[in-house]
Amino acid sequence: MRLSHRLACLVIALPPLAIVVWLFFIPFLSSAYLSLLREDQWSLRNYYLVWRLYRYDILYTLWIAFFSLVAVLVIAVFLCGYLRIHINRPVEFLFKIPLFIPFVVVGHAMRVLLAPKGTLNAALSQIGLVNMNDPPSIAFGWIGIAVCLIWKNLALAVLLVLGSYRSVDETFLEAARNFGASTFQQIKDILLPMSKASLAVAGAFMFTSMLASFSVPLMIGSGEPPQMVMIDVFYRINYQMDYGTANALGVVSYLLAMGVAGYYLRTIQKGT
């Protein structure tokens, strides 16, 4: 390319690049830098604090993300299989709705629904399934968070998995149906194995987003340990102004996200 063209490209690319570099790339790198500083001295004390204070929170976060991911994928694999084989447009449309409902709203809605004195317990106590003097609390615990993450991510999973199922040519299914394969067998033997790579990508995408979930645990978390990692970062900054530990925790979360991405990238390469 001519020099003037290169310059034109640069001018075009500069403003958006500048914003992302300034407000994401540099802060991202400075996480690593700040995490190694303690009272203006190089130190690993921040990571020691992360280990001492937050190791169970990291496991807790991984557990919630893992549980929600497995639940979402299992439901999506079979729900989409059903939707692929027996077309049901209304159901498909309904499952797109959560895509357009922000996490904060999901958090609040589940808080109202699942709190000890929430709508669900009120409904269940009417038919005597719940003791109204000691109602169970699904919100304010890991299950509440998981329910929110599953509800919201299911829409995304349905979108991605159904898209990849639709790209499986109808004749592959007809050939199986011809031999008497049931809906379940068509999903298990044909659709699922032929969509493995897209499923891995969708899974990686959702797992990092679940690890990094912030507004949901903020809305329906209990405020007491164990907490999800993002809440710890937020509290560490907001209440203790401890940027060192917060950034060390941030770096740990980046590493988790990278680990997941790496693992899934390998799976995809093996799959093809």
Binding site: D169, T171, F172, E174, A175, I190, P193, M194, K196
Partner: peptide, 9 residues
């Protein structure tokens, strides 16, 4: 089938 429809996996 015309496109064989052999399951590739």
């Amino acid at each position: 089938f015309q496109n064989y429809a052999l399951w590739p996996h």
